[in-house]
């Protein structure tokens, strides 16, 4: 229990009569890369949405670092150090990298009721450092996100999560719609999380990607966890047979 950064106990969720999560109990261990796999409708996204504050569980308990917490909004999740990177990309293409890095958490020089003047110097400096920290080579933080490739954007999203010292990074199918080269880059990012002591939760349809970069694989089907093993102790075939 002590090495679990997030532990969920008996989590239930109904969507207008559909029992999407049927009592999920799971520990996310500190510094581990966990692969979450399952078919569409298996409950992966529901579980992730609850952890990232998009939806609320109807029943069950969430503990973060041993403390029972309530995650009502995406902001609550971020404040607890849980950052989610979505497949559709949580970047605004019409804005610069520097602005995207700080969306919703902009450094301000002074503020009244939470609204204030942006500290643009700080944003520029910190975004250069943040991008460099994930080994992403970009021309300038003033470049627009719309100019970046899909893999680069996921890299910026990961840099953003790192910059805000997130403890758990949830990557919701980050390799969808990416080329092989770009996918390898993202998998490299996930491997890099471990070195930085960040817990990674990697959600994918692609079993090879999961086995490539994760320590542990959790499979879900019909709203339940059907397999929870170390990658070394299982095989792609075994996971497939359970889905």
């Amino acid at each position: 229990m002590s090495d679990a950064i997030i532990s969920v106990r008996d989590l239930h969720k109904w969507y207008s009569g559909v029992h999407a999560l049927k009592g999920v109990t799971l520990d996310f261990k500190r510094g581990e890369a966990l692969g979450l796999v399952g078919d569409n409708g298996a409950g992966k996204s529901t579980l992730i949405n609850i952890l990232s504050g998009v939806h609320r569980a109807d029943q069950g308990e969430i503990n973060v670092e041993g403390r029972a917490v309530s995650i009502a909004t995406p902001r609550d999740a971020m404040d607890l150090g849980i950052e989610t990177i979505y497949q559709y990309n949580s970047m605004v293409p019409t804005m610069s990298i520097a602005r995207n890095l700080f969306i919703g958490r902009e450094p301000t020089r002074f503020s009244i009721f939470g609204v204030g003047i942006l500290d643009q110097k700080k944003m520029a400096e910190e975004s250069i450092r943040a991008i460099a920290s994930v080994d992403l080579h970009l021309r300038s933080p003033e470049a627009l996100v719309g100019e970046l490739s899909g893999g680069q954007r996921q890299g910026v999203a990961i840099a953003r999560a790192m910059h805000f010292k997130s403890k758990v990074m949830i990557l919701d199918e980050p390799t969808n719609h990416l080329s092989v080269k770009e996918t390898n880059k993202v998998i490299g990012f996930v491997r890099g999380l471990k070195e930085q002591g960040v817990t990674g939760v990697f959600i994918s349809h692609n079993m090879h990607h999961v086995f490539d970069c994760c320590d542990r694989v959790v499979a879900m089907a019909r709203g339940e966890v059907v397999l929870d093993k170390r990658v070394a102790d299982t095989s792609i075939d075994e996971v497939h047979s359970l889905l």
Partner: peptide, 20 residues
């Protein structure tokens, strides 16, 4: 920062919402 939120909200709503 409020200007940033306006642009983010109009630029790509899901991203703005997911960033709180």
């Amino acid at each position: 920062n409020f200007g940033n939120w306006i642009k983010a909200t109009g630029g790509f709503l899901p991203a703005a919402a997911s960033m709180g």
